[in-house]
Amino acid sequence: MKRRAFAESLAVAALAPMLGVPAEALRLDPGGPSEARPPAMPDGAPASGSRALPLALALTEIVRLRYGSRLRVEDLTAITRQIEAGLERADLVREAELSNVAPLGAAPQHGG
């Protein structure tokens, strides 16, 4: 099992009680997010089955560890959805061609 997949499996195991499902229901494929099977989800839990979902669940666990005392299960569910949407945006960013010679741009250019 790769390190990232291992971390995700730990995170999912911790998150499962918050989402009210057995950890088995959220178990990830050891191949990582790109090979993950759509997990079985309860009503009200993230149910997109997208490739981003396993990583979204892992990142939700970071949020839970940092701020969990203030967050309800339904909050965590909503946060997972938001993270998942963000990861899908990030996927689009990663798919775009980018040369390593481009300088890091901290702000928009003003070419006009």
């Binding site: 990142l59 939700t60 970071i62 949020v63 940092r66 701020y67 967050l71 339904e74 909050d75 909503a78 946060i79 938001q82 993270i83 949407a85 963000g86 990030a90 960013v93 990663r94 775009a96 980018l98 040369s99 481009a102 300088p103 890091l104 741009g105 901290a106 928009p108 250019q109």
Partner: peptide, 23 residues
């Protein structure tokens, strides 16, 4: 419950977006 998702944007994704922003 909003905004927490932004707390876990991966640094690599943010930096890549900033690099892509210029081209």
């Amino acid at each position: 419950a909003g905004g927490y998702a932004g707390q876990v944007v991966l640094a690599g994704d943010y930096l890549r977006a900033m690099r892509l922003r210029r081209p």
